[in-house]
Amino acid sequence: MKKINLICIGCPMGCPLTIEKDGSKIISVTGNTCPRGDAYARKELTNPTRIVTSTVAVEGGDVMRISVKTKQDIPKDKIFACVKELKNVSIKAPVHIGDVILENVAGTGVDVVATKGSSW
């Protein structure tokens, strides 16, 4: 039996989690305040993922850049590939919050969406 300590990043409470593992099997997760902590611990030990945020250039808008995010969390090892693909993206104004900026980023099946709008 192995004990692993993690900090839940599900929200800014940052609950200290303790996971008991037997081989590759997770026996228990404790220390979480809400169910998201349990889910986070299981995922972090098998397939860690993160939401990625960045910015892309805007053409002809009232701002130079707008902020974007991956619509869902993507595998941790795809973070740099994701940011790299976004470097080449430039979007034409107008843009609205939630508009898809880039589909299937880095082959993750996840879209990148705008988190800020820009008018002309």
Binding site: I51, T53, K69, K116, G117
Partner: peptide, 25 residues
């Protein structure tokens, strides 16, 4: 908030994880 483009805002208020500009919006 306009310059805080990372996620993690609004979990308590909106029950979803927003970026700074989305929260402001």
């Amino acid at each position: 908030l306009n310059q805080c483009i990372h996620n993690g805002f609004g979990l308590h208020t909106f029950k979803e994880e927003l970026t700074g500009p989305e929260y402001a919006a």
